[in-house]
Simulated assay, not measured.
Amino acid sequence: MQRNIARLNTAYKNFFDGRGFPQIFYGKTAQTIREHLPGICNYFISGTTSGVMEGINNKIRLVMRLGYGLTNFNNLRSRLLGCCS
């Protein structure tokens, strides 16, 4: 497992870190990949995503939009707990 991660890091450095074609034309993309490479590797290792958490956050935003103007936090909390349970 660690050997595969090391190979991926080496391939990435050879491809993106030089001043060749990818760095010139895809500099922002290369920087983003460089910053998120551990998370990208973890996805391929474990195969899990954050889709469930994103769905919960989306539902919370929806309830907050529908409850616009609520001044009582306990009412908002009750709506969230009822919606997500």
Rank of each mutant, 00 (worst) to 15 (best):
S46P: 00
M1N: 14
K59Y: 01
Q31M: 07
N74I: 12
I40C: 00
N75S: 05
I60S: 07
A30F: 03
E54K: 13
M53A: 14
N75Y: 09
M53P: 04
N58S: 15
N42E: 01
C84T: 15
N4T: 15
A6C: 09
N9S: 09
V63K: 15
V63C: 06
K13Q: 07
N72I: 07
T10I: 08
L8A: 13
Q23D: 00
N74H: 13
L81S: 06
C83L: 03
D17P: 03
F16V: 04
I60D: 04
N42F: 07
T48P: 00
Y68T: 08
A6Y: 12
F15Q: 03
F21N: 05
R34S: 03
C41H: 09
G27E: 04
A30R: 08
R3F: 09
R3Q: 14
D17F: 15
R3Y: 09
I45W: 02
G55K: 10
L8W: 10
N14T: 11
A30G: 08
I24M: 01
T49Q: 02
T49M: 01
S85M: 14
N42K: 09
F16E: 00
K28E: 02
M53G: 10
N58D: 08
M64S: 14
Q31Y: 04
P22V: 11
N42C: 04
N57I: 15
A11G: 13
L37V: 06
R77I: 03
A30T: 09
I5G: 00
C84E: 05
G39I: 06
E35F: 04
E35K: 12
D17L: 09
I5D: 02
L80R: 10
R19E: 03
Y68W: 05
N72P: 00
K28P: 00
V63Y: 11
N75M: 09
C41K: 14
T49V: 02
F25M: 10
T32M: 06
L66Y: 11
T48Q: 11
R79V: 01
L76I: 14
L66N: 13
